[in-house]
Each structure stands twice: as structure tokens, then as C-alpha cells.
Design a protein around this nucleic acid. Structure first.
Lengths: 99, 99
DNA sequence: GACAATTATATCATACATGATATATTCACA
DNA sequence: TGTGAATATATCATGTATGATATAATTGTC
């Protein structure tokens, strides 16, 4: 049986969940891309780390996507070592229909 | 008279300069975009700061582009407040011809 | 020019990402 | 299953972005 509260709760839950999930997803997308390019270049984390002037653990951390945050300079550094460039484009956020 | 050293030096100089300049440019592009969107929404730095849960000085700092670095979470935070999303795409770096 | 609003800059404390190192875990292959 | 390579995780020190506050500089309006 649907109570009003359950409906409202669900709505809030969804929106918040989605926001959080999107953030989450974004990080993981970055992580996945880095992994993809590194593998494509046939490099190990250690090799990439050395080339990017950082440590294997830092690369692992980046690729694991567990951190909700990274600095642009770090991302640039790693990308440089793989001859790729992270481009940032700003898109309008979809105004999602109220469900 | 062109010595071998002067040629090599120049080459290195150019590449490094360009790398640095690109980094620099990138930051400024972000700054400019943020300013553009903020203005488009008719907000002051103070208003945006409040909405993004940060300070006017932090927004000013971001928009000034003087910092060579920012965190993704900060960028996300500010973008969220303006209903935009920073999307990161990875592009192959142009292999520039040796000059 | 005076005044208000806005933006830029400076400073300092604090939180947190990164660097470094060590070690655990996973994976591939014999 | 054993072994080495690769990756993940843990911990701690350190550098640095951010938060907060104050104030200077700029801009627009009268």
C-alpha cells in the first residue's frame, strides 16, 4: 500500500540518489578511461606512474575511482604521460521531469 | 649564427612553452566559461557562492584562473549551482611536427 | 567626486589530495 | 600449486586547494 510518505520518500530518494550516482559515475568514467588508455598503450601502472612522475599507488587510487575527488593538475599530469588531453565541456543539466 | 645547442634549446623551449601555455589556457577557459554561465544566470559571485555553498573569494579565485589547479569536486559544486555539468572527454594529443 | 555594489586580492587555518613506502591481494602462467 | 608480476590497499607526511574573513580595487550610478 502506498502511503503519501512512502511516495515522497521515494521521490527524494530518487533525485538524491541520482545526483549522487551521477557524481559517482563521473569519477568512474574517468577511472575507466584512464585504464582504457593505459592498457591501449600497453603500460603497467608502475610504468605510467614513472612517466607521469608519480607513484604506482597514486595511479591505482585514480583508477580505482574510490576517491570522490581529484585535482585537474593530477589528471593532466597522468594524461600527458599517455599523450591524451582531458577536455572539459560544460553542458546544461537536463531538467528532469517530476515523477 | 646557429649553434647546435641553440637549435636544441629553442626546440625544447618551444615545446615546454607550449605545454605550459596549454595548461594555462585550459584553466582560463574554465574560468571564462564559469563567468559566462554565471552572468547568463544574472548572478553575482556572492550569490553563486552562497548557492554553491562556498565563499565569494573562492569563486573569484576560480574565475581569475590564477591557480594552476582546482579539484573536480569544487568544479562540480560550482557547476551544480548553475545547473551545468562539467563533462570530461579525453582526446588524443596532436603529435606535432618536429620543427 | 561620492557612494554602493561588485569583484579582486591577501592572509591564515583547515581539510584533503598526493607522494612515498610498505604490504596485501590478485592474476597469469609454468 | 608455486612463483613472479601487476594491482589494490593501508598508512603517514606533506603540499596545496579551499573556507573564512578582511580589505583593496573596480565598476557603475547619481
Amino acid at each position: 500500500m502506498k502511503t503519501l510518505k512512502s511516495i515522497i520518500d521515494k521521490k527524494i530518494e530518487n533525485v538524491e540518489f541520482r545526483e549522487a550516482f551521477n557524481e559517482y559515475e563521473k569519477e568512474f568514467q574517468i577511472a575507466r578511461q584512464i585504464i582504457k588508455y593505459r592498457k591501449k598503450m600497453g603500460m603497467t601502472q608502475t610504468e605510467l606512474a614513472k612517466k607521469a612522475n608519480t607513484s604506482q599507488s597514486a595511479i591505482a587510487r585514480l583508477e580505482s575511482g574510490v576517491h570522490q575527488n581529484i585535482t585537474l593538475s593530477f589528471l593532466n599530469k597522468v594524461c600527458n604521460a599517455m599523450n591524451i588531453i582531458p577536455e572539459i565541456k560544460f553542458k546544461k543539466k537536463q531538467r528532469r521531469a517530476v515523477q
